[in-house]
């Protein structure tokens, strides 16, 4: 199971990668394995500001549905349109082609409250 070092992680199993004033968000390798085959990503917050810890969308697997939580406060600028045709990318490449949204970074200090790769790895018991 992969936990890339350059990312920050949430206890709800999202990852975030900051690149200047913007950040990319997805779910972790652990999360995709737990959910199983992902069939549909439902994000209806495009263009909206979503608070840290609030739901920005949901992810549907064959067996279950799970909410997606914002790691930080930001406006959703873009969602990964390729997932509509290929939701399985989230299973196959959760940190790459399976990314979910790009958002603004409203308050960089919020990032300090998130977990490092090692901390997250310890939390999920790997």
């Amino acid at each position: 199971m992969k936990f890339p070092a350059g990312l920050k992680y949430t206890k709800e199993h999202e990852w975030i990668k900051v690149d200047g004033a913007q950040a990319t968000i997805g779910i972790t390798d652990f999360a995709q394995k737990e959910l199983g085959d992902i069939v549909f990503i439902d994000i209806d917050t495009l263009g909206k500001e979503v608070h840290a810890g609030s739901v920005f969308g949901t992810i549907e697997a064959v067996k279950t549905v799970s909410d997606l939580y914002m790691p930080i406060t930001g406006t959703i600028l873009e969602m990964n349109d390729t997932l509509e045709a290929e939701p399985e990318s989230v299973n196959g490449d959760p940190y790459g082609s399976g990314w979910l949204v790009i958002c603004t970074v409203k308050d960089p200090s919020e990032l300090e409250g998130l977990m490092s790769a090692d901390e997250y790895k310890a939390m999920v018991g790997h």
């Binding site: 709800e12 199993h13 652990f30 999360a31 737990e34 959910l35 279950t64 799970s66 909410d67």
Partner: peptide, 10 residues
Amino acid sequence: FISNGLSLFS
């Protein structure tokens, strides 16, 4: 477990 069915934790 049913009432926490959305949890990702095992």
